[in-house]
């Protein structure tokens, strides 16, 4: 069954008839042509597909595109502000928070919401906050460092 679906992704409207079963991540990748969000699993575990739907971090492989009809989605491609890297992107770069990069878009999108909810997380809080995102390369350590560094940078930026 085809359903008319309209989703704003990174400020741009994408509209069309899609099958009701279309996963949001496939809408973003195939209709939106934005391939930053990755599909890393089929059981909602890995978090590589994490995007923000109306400001909330969700696993876009576990949401139908029709459920997101009328919403505003932000993906990793929309995180940088006018070309300026988001503090998390900066920090992941500076702290070597990525190796192969496949988990990185989801990891950064998850971390962004973690910092919104808790601007000064402890290392332990960061580790718990990222429990829904797998990384097989980094052993998580530099990811944790990057998130902590981004938190500090955001605080400095706010002062």
């Amino acid at each position: 069954m085809q359903v008319e679906t309209k989703i704003s992704i990174n400020g741009k409207d994408y509209e069309g008839e899609v099958e009701a079963r279309t996963l949001l991540v496939h809408f973003i990748r195939d209709v939106g042509g934005l391939t930053g969000a990755k599909v890393g699993c089929d059981t909602s575990q890995c978090g590589a597909c994490t995007v923000h739907v109306d400001g909330v971090a969700v696993k876009s492989c576990t949401m139908l595109a029709v459920q997101a009809d009328g919403t505003s989605v932000t993906t990793i491609e929309g995180l940088a502000d006018d070309g300026d890297l988001h503090p998390l992107q900066e920090a992941f770069w500076a702290k070597h928070g990525l190796q192969c990069g496949f988990c990185t878009p989801g990891m950064i999108m998850a971390a962004a919401k973690l910092l919104e909810a808790n601007p000064s997380p402890s290392e332990e809080e960061v580790r718990h906050g990222l429990e829904g995102n797998f990384c097989r390369c980094t052993g998580y350590q530099n990811i944790v460092r990057a998130v902590t560094e981004a938190a500090d940078a955001q605080k400095e930026g706010a002062e």
């Binding site: 909602s44 978090g47 998850a110 919401k113 829904g132």
Partner: peptide, 9 residues
Amino acid sequence: IGDPAVRNR
């Protein structure tokens, strides 16, 4: 339950 993104939905 689950993880933060799972809890959000």
